[in-house]
Structure formats: structure tokens, C-alpha cells
Nucleic acid binder design. Structure first.
Lengths: 188, 188
DNA sequence: TTTAAAAATTAAGATATCTTAAGAAATTGA
DNA sequence: TCAATTTCTTAAGATATCTTAATTTTTAAA
């Protein structure tokens, strides 16, 4: 796990093995079984999770009781409920493992300590946050520009291996389509 | 302008006046007239803009020729086409001043120099990027949860002063509603 | 003050997508 | 291997939102 983290961090800046060790010590490994929740609505999201292996989904439940998937997190991504983590207010979101998932988690206090002791980490998280923002903007853009059918085709074409790991009704949710309508779209 | 920047930066970390000066020297003030473009589709977005005064919109034009406003930028916000700025590829977006707008702009090279010489800036931009991400996530959330009518009412209620600075058809675009339908919604 | 341009409204017809409800298929666990 | 659960499909009727096109109102420019 440490080596996976190391090669991840070295994408963004050069870290000595002492620095890696120091950061690693702030992290706690944890494994979640399939369907287990990393976070539930109402909880304050105290951690950022670095996914070593597995797959999670971040979603909310609207007033009609429907789940809306906001994004998926996979290997080598940091994931959290940003708003809750930063503001320390109850999360509106759920985070759930869709496969058995191993993460390295860090809480806010430790993260602040890590920033303080290893300032280069600010850079890493500045860049990963930017990347996340780009990903979200791309998603938004293809949402506004495409019909349901086009979104689905695009998703399947661009992320075939990813699509295979996720049940169709969750893809529908992610693409903001009802599962019934998606089924119809697939037919003809 | 420098003092405005200074008080902005000091929200996120403590900067000496030498550091402020050093950063300020990397920045170029510029004023755009109403309707002038800060960025056009196809251009590579070479700058981040810190808005001193004024109002801009970031938008794309879809294949039907419709403008889709992604967000507005106002005083004390950094704005850019993230994807283009970071990847150095042609922008899919336009950025246009809706009022006479004064900005401090910084290009990528200078920003990297600034990060290098004043590492605390990594923190500032890490945090501002996080804030931006939260803002986008909130917008997305209220999009998936609300009807057109609800989105409009919410917008007007939460940002009345902001709404007054923007023509209605642009609010419609931002909320992903046609101007005609918004007009209908307002009626009854 | 008048004219031109920009923005907002109206209304009728079209359509993409949802809702509901039921049944079929596939996957998982015992 | 069988039962239980989860996922996917079908279809009919409902509706939110869009399209088009014309008209009115407001704002800006000369």
C-alpha cells in the first residue's frame, strides 16, 4: 500500500522516502465489505479516503426516495464528501462500497498536520482538487450538451471496463436517467 | 488593487507585505469593457483571472447554437477555463465580461514561479479550488433535486442582488431552462 | 427624442423523459 | 441446486419542458 501511495504522490512532486513514511503514518488503512457504508447522510465526514483497491459510489437520496449517484471512486483516487469534510457540517451524501474496498483514510486534523510538516502535500492536493474539478466540469458539460441516449452511448464507449463493474441501474442514476427509460433506450 | 488582493490572500494564510509584493509583480491588471471576451472557444486559456471588480460569465455554445452558462464570476473570485488552463489545450468555453470588469491576470509560467517562490500560495489555491468544487457540487445537487421552477425560486431567493445584475435569459441559461419556459414559470 | 437593438412574453403544438406497475431474467447465498 | 434477492425489461399513460414564431416591452444608441 505504501508503494502505491508513493508512486501516486510522486506524480505530483518529488518526495523523499522519509516524507512518504511521515505521511503514511498519518493514514489509517481500512477495508470495507461490499455494500458497507463509508459515510451516511447526517454524519460529519471526517475523512478523506485514498482508494487502494475497490470501487465506491457517492450519492444522495432525494425527497422522492430516489438515489442520485454523484460520482464513483476507484483505485488511486481521493474521495470524500468535500462540503462536509471542509465545513465540518453533516453530510447530505452517502458513500458506499460497491466492491470490497481498501482505503487509506486521513482525518482533518492529521491532514492539517501533514500539510504543516510536508508542505509539498499542499501541491498534491491542490492539483488533485483541480483534476477533480476538471472531471466534474467535463461531466457537467456533456450533461448539458447531450440527450440521455447520447450520454449513455458516450459513457459506454469511453469507459467500457468501468461500466462492467457497475449495475446498469447505477449507470442510469449517474447519468440522470430512470432505469426504465435507460432500458428503453438500449432496446432501440 | 493590491490591498484587495492582500486581504483576499490573508483569508487563507499569513503573508508578509514582501510576499504580497512579490506575488503582485507576477500579476497584470487589465480592464475589459462590457461584452468584451476574456477568452473564446478555441483559444488556449493562458491565464487565471482574479476579479477586482465586475462580472463575467463562462459559457459554451452547443451544436444547436445555444449558449449554456456554466458559471458567473464576481469580485474576489478567481476564474479561468480550468481544463484549458491546466491541459493547455484549446478551450471549449467562452468567457465574457457582462459589466466593465477589472481583473488581475496571471499566466501559467508566472503562477508556477509564484508557487515556487511563495509556497504558501499552493495552500491558497488548494483552498480556493476546494471552495469552487463545493460550489459546483452544490449547484449539481440542487439541479438533480429540484424542478425548473424550484431552481429559479431558489436562485432568486438566495442571490437577489446577484440576480439583478444579470438579464433574465442568462439566469435561465445558467439554470438550464429555456428563456420562454422561464417566462412561463414566472407568470404562474 | 426617436430609432434600433436587446430582452421578455405569449401561445400552440411537439417530444423527451418519467411514473407506475407488473413480470422476466440474472445473480447470490444457503 | 433451489430459493431469495437483485437487476432488468415492457408498456401505457402522464407531464415537464422545449420549439417555433410572432408580439410586446425595455434598454441603449444616435
Amino acid at each position: 500500500m505504501k508503494s502505491q501511495l508513493q508512486s501516486y504522490l510522486n506524480r505530483y512532486a518529488t518526495f523523499s522516502s522519509e516524507e512518504i513514511d511521515a505521511f503514511y503514518n498519518y493514514l489509517t488503512p481500512k477495508t470495507f465489505q461490499k455494500k458497507e457504508f463509508l459515510l451516511k447522510e447526517g454524519d460529519i465526514c471526517k475523512n478523506k479516503f485514498f482508494i487502494i483497491e475497490g470501487l465506491v459510489r457517492l450519492f444522495n437520496i432525494d425527497n422522492k426516495g430516489h438515489e442520485n449517484i454523484i460520482h464513483f471512486g476507484i483505485e488511486n483516487w481521493w474521495t470524500t464528501s468535500f462540503e462536509s469534510f471542509i465545513t465540518e457540517k453533516p453530510s447530505l451524501l452517502y458513500m458506499q462500497a460497491l466492491e470490497k474496498t481498501t482505503v487509506l483514510s486521513i482525518n482533518k486534523e492529521n491532514l492539517e498536520k501533514a500539510y504543516y510538516n510536508i508542505p509539498k502535500l499542499e501541491r498534491v492536493f491542490r492539483i488533485t482538487t483541480e483534476n477533480m474539478l476538471i472531471a466534474i466540469e467535463r461531466k457537467n458539460e456533456f450533461y448539458t450538451k447531450m440527450s440521455s441516449k447520447e450520454r449513455y452511448d458516450f459513457f459506454i464507449e469511453k469507459l467500457p471496463s468501468f461500466a462492467q463493474r457497475i449495475p446498469q441501474y447505477m449507470i442510469a442514476s449517474y447519468l440522470d436517467i430512470t432505469p426504465e427509460y435507460l432500458s428503453e433506450l438500449r432496446k432501440g
